[in-house]
Structure formats: C-alpha cells, structure tokens
Nucleic acid binder design. Structure first.
Lengths: 328, 328
DNA sequence: CTTATATTTGGAACCGGTTCCACATTAAAG
DNA sequence: CTTTAATGTGGAACCGGTTCCAAATATAAG
C-alpha cells in the first residue's frame, strides 16, 4: 500500500501538520526536521498530488494548446517548453487541436476547468472569441506566434524576417520576384511577413513583386506556384514557409525549370529536411530553442505573480542553401 | 466562486451522495434524476477532478512516453492516440525523453507515482531495466514499436515489411542491392527489418545484398551511404528509414549519380515530405492511424480489466515514388 | 527571575468528491 | 393483506493532503 503523510507523521512521532509544514517549507526546528527527513527517505514517501491540489488550488500543471504536433515549428518549440517546465517542477499538459479553432477554444476552457496553473497557446489566428475568452480568464495566459496587446505574447518579428529575406533575394540581383503567401487571418505570417518581404524586395532593387495566396499545405502551395509560373516571369520565388517552398520546387521541376539556374526559391522556417534535400533550401531559421525557454520562464513568472514584458521577440537568421542564385 | 457538489445537492434538495450517484450512473429515480440534471445545467457544474481522483483512485490520465516529438512516426501516432483517448474520457499526458533511456525509465516511474491509469511507451530499445520495471508495474502497460512476450505490444511486422520492399526492388530487376540499416539494439528496425529485406531480395533474384550500418540521423546516414558507394556497385539502395534515404540521395547526387537512372533508392516510413521531394521516394507507408486507434483502445481495455491479445500488428503498404526504376 | 515575544508544534476543520451502510419506500410474491 | 425483495435516498466516514488557530516551548528583554 502507498505510504501517506499520516504514516510518516506517526512514524516520526509528530502531527501530520508538522510533516506538511516540513514539505512546504514552514518553520521547523532542526531536530524534527531531521527526524522527518529520515523517515521520509526510509519509506520513500511521495505526497499525493491530487490531495495536495485539492486544498491548495495549485496543480503544477501548465496547459499547452497547439494546432498540430506534426509540425516542425511546434514540435521543436514544444520539446523545449516541456524540458524547461519540467525542470521548474511543472508538468506540461499538451493538447492537440488538429487545426480546429473550435477545439482550440474548447481546450482552453477545459484546461481552465482542470485548474491548470497557466496556459500557453500556439496561435495561428485570433478571433473575437479568443479575446472574449481572454477577458474571462483567471489564470496566466501566454500566446506564441501571434501578437496582441491584450495578453502576453512571444512572437518573431515577422516583418523584419520578411524584410531580411526580401533584401537577401533582391540584392543578389533579382528584379522580378514573386511571393507565395497565406491568408491574412494569420496576421503574423499572412500580413506582417508578407509586408516585410515586399518592403525588403522593393527597397533593394526589385522592380516588381507579385503576390500569390495559398495556404499552409503542400497541395495549395503547388496550386499557387502554378499560378505564378503562368502569370509572371519572376526569377525568384520567396515562399512563406518551407512547406510552400517544397511545393514550389516540385512545380518548378515539373515545368522544366532548373533550381536555382532558372528560378531561385526560398522559404521560412528552417526545417531540418530543407537542408537535406537537393538543392538545399535557403530559408529563415527561427530560434525555437529560445522561444521555448522564453515561453517556459515567462509562464512561470506569470504564475508566480512577477512582471514580464508583454511582447517578447526571439531571434532568427538566414540560413543559406543552394536554392537561391545570384542574378545579373 | 466555483460551484461544488454541495451547492448542487442543496439546490436540488437532495444529499450530495445522491448527486454523486447521479454523476456516476448509480440507481436514481427518474424524478430526482431530472431535478438534479436541471440544477447542474443551470449552474453548469463540473466536478472537481482532483477531489474525484483522491477517493476513487482513478485519475483519467494515460501517460505516453516518447523518445521524440519531432519525429514523423511518433507525432502522427501520438495525435491519433490523443484523439481517441480524449473521446473515451481520458487525458493524455505526453512525456518527451529526447532519446534518453534514463529519462525514459525515470518518466515511467514518475508516471506511476502520478497515478496515471495506464502507460504507453514508444520503444526503441528494451533493456534489462525495462523488464525489471515492467515486473514491478501495477498499472496497465503497452509498448509500441518493439516486441516482447512480457507485456502487451503493438508493432508492425517489420520482417514482412522488409521482405516486401526487398521483393519489390529485387523483382524490378536489381541484382546488386545494398541495405543501409541501424544498430541491432533496436530489434524491430535493426534486426527484423534488415532480415526481411535480405530475405526479400535474395528470394526474388538478387545476387548480392550488402549491408551498411549507420544510425537514425542524417549525418550518419550520409556516412553509411558514402561507404556503400566506395565499396559496392549496387544499383539499388534500400534504406531503413526515409531520413536515411534522404541522406543517401544527397550523397548519391554529390557523387554524380542520377536518381533513379543510375541508382534506385527506397525508404521506410512514408513521411509526408518524401512525397514532396524530387524524385519522390518509394517507401513503406505504415498505418499510423491504425496504430493510434489500436493503442488507445488497447490501453482502455486493459484499464477496464478486459482481455486483449498480447501482440497486435497494424498494416502497411508500399507507396511507389519516382526513386526506384526497373532494371534489366 | 519575571514578563513579553518569537518560534514550534499539535489538533481540528476543510478541500470536493466517493462509497458504504442503514433506513425508507415501492413493487412483487405468496 | 402480509411477507420478501428490489430500489432509492440520506448520513457519515473517508481519501490525503493544507491551513488556521491555540497551546507549548524557547528565546530575548527588562
């Protein structure tokens, strides 16, 4: 049978409240402290976390809601968050919503009911319901990937990332550039990143920047790429994610273009696989480690009641591959 | 303030034990049942899961321990397990061990302490400590990916999968074939799959089958591939995973081979990205959906005390890509 | 050596449920 | 119209901790 606080108390000849105090760092004389310590070790006692949570209202759980687990960005960040939170004594409760906004909102509510100490959301789109829910929230909340004034956010500077990539491509000599982007509901990627790319291209020598909208998946990327090839004579194709870039590469090849000799292609995300394929993809590499560490420490501080900056921006860099070639 | 079972009981004019019985499906007259139902809905009451677990010894948690979250196979399966368990009223506790066997064993112990109702392990290697731990386990346990008589397992028939791929390649005319495999500690992939491939090749016309051992990562795959090219004149290269195949493709290209004209390459895993690259990879596609469903229903049955077959095998199929070409 | 103050400790109530048991009520059987 | 069995309900104990308060002990000040 499992050993309880009562067993420890009677074994040590003290009241269970004393043991509880010992466990939670109350004032205890050195003598009893030593005594209790020995008994606990002897029976390798572990407090029952449910009983503990029941009264104390603290669960030690942090909920993390993500639209997908099979995404490079999410999984990399998640692993780090999980690692960091574990070290800090929290247990991460990972919830996958399979890209359903409904399930996302529902999960956030459920987590609150389950009395997690804090929640982290990998956001793709912030709807009015999100804001409504945030109003009613009584626990610390942190958003990763999108930006709003209404709560704490960790998000890359997508405008700047876009700008840097735009500049990189334009200053290697490309005059006609296309951007394959995504829907504007995802403000970070669909708006900021796009605007950054356009500005970066235009301010560094590009003459025209065409825009084609698709979605995050491979199929839609291929469709957008086809549109591009039949409507422009761009020599470079900047894609909003590495997946989109892979779609564009496939279409380019099917149409007989050589990469990068005939058409340069770049992406965003720095996926591992992007470096493995041929030609390897030039892409913006986001620092997911930093994001994870930042997220974990932020939610912890919020739970502890400390102040944290509302908006934090992890770093990124351009990873040069073989898919972009100088033009001129 | 949060509404409790006492509030509901007094509002409904019954004892809280009656409410509890209502919630857990005991005998209740239609009249009181109706009354309680109304009050509960009115106050949208949700029982406190901690209080519930405290007495009932059931937590509703199922622990899942995985070596990595950023793996195609794991994440696909995990998502499905999570989905299925949620529907059955369980909460999945996902633990990532970052490929550390120590952390794996530690996590399994921790989960048991946290009183999860059951555990699922994505195994890569079963050590004596694993078996020792399994002896002491008091809760249902399920292994995915490796096979042992000592507990319940869900694992693909790696021998058969290997055999099918070997046959596919050999019967398309290749006489000299190489297999890039992994260490034997991973019995499923390192031994069974390898043996299947060799048998499948030899029994279908292959003259020589060379073997090169690497590891699961890209770098080591490239190293093994280089060894192959400098020591054999194989016309086909069967790789133990898609990642290894990607590494082999890169090396082949660097050495000036065209795929599949000069060298055919195939993998195992059916990664999404394998269909996106050029040439798309011929690979064995495992049914991760089925694995997930099977895992969830199995652990549930075990928790409920039902009988389940000790060994279950999900299905797979060969997905033809452009990377293997008929030879003759 | 008192008296006032601070530190330790034990006891009891409580957190929000579940479960066991006894009692009341109703239905079925004789 | 009893007697017996089945069903429904309330009360109390319990799960394993935390927390508040008062009592006991130790320490400092006068």
């Amino acid at each position: 049978m499992k050993v309880t606080i009562n067993d420890i108390a009677s074994r040590a000849g003290v009241a269970k409240s004393t043991v509880s105090r010992y466990l939670n760092g109350g004032r205890i004389s050195a003598a009893t402290s030593e005594k209790i310590k020995r008994v606990i070790e002897e029976h390798d006692y572990e407090p029952n976390s449910f009983a503990r949570s029941l009264k104390s209202k603290k669960t030690g759980f942090v909920g993390v809601v993500a639209p997908a687990l099979d995404s490079f960005v999410t999984s990399k960040t998640l692993i780090r968050i999980d690692d960091e939170l574990r070290e800090r004594g929290y247990t991460t409760l990972i919830i996958n919503t399979s890209h359903s906004i409904e399930r996302e909102l529902e999960s956030l509510q459920n987590l609150q009911r389950q009395k997690v100490d804090g929640m982290i959301l990998f956001a793709t789109e912030l709807t009015p319901q999100h804001f409504e829910l945030m109003e009613q929230l009584t626990i610390p909340f942190l958003i990763i990937g999108q930006e709003t004034k209404r709560t704490h956010c960790i998000v890359f500077d997508d405008y700047k990332a876009g700008y840097e990539m735009g500049r990189y491509v334009a200053s290697s000599g490309h005059k006609q550039i296309s951007f394959l982007g995504v829907q504007e509901e995802d403000v970070a990627v669909g708006v900021r990143r796009k605007e950054g790319v356009i500005a970066g291209c235009k301010e560094n020598g590009a003459e025209t920047v065409s825009f084609f909208r698709g979605s995050f998946d491979f199929q839609s990327a291929m469709k957008a790429a086809k549109e591009n090839f039949s409507n422009t004579s761009s020599t470079a194709l900047i894609c909003a994610t590495d997946t989109i870039a892979l779609g564009a590469m496939r279409v380019a090849r099917e149409l007989g273009y050589r990469i990068p000799e005939d058409i340069s292609i770049s992406g965003f995300g720095g996926y591992t696989v992007s470096a493995m394929i041929h030609p390897s993809l030039t892409t913006v590499e986001f620092d997911h480690q930093e994001t994870g560490v930042l997220a974990a420490s932020t939610i912890e501080k919020l739970i502890e009641g400390e102040e944290v900056e509302k908006l934090q921006r992890p770093s990124f860099s351009i990873r040069e591959g073989e898919s972009v070639k100088g033009k001129k």
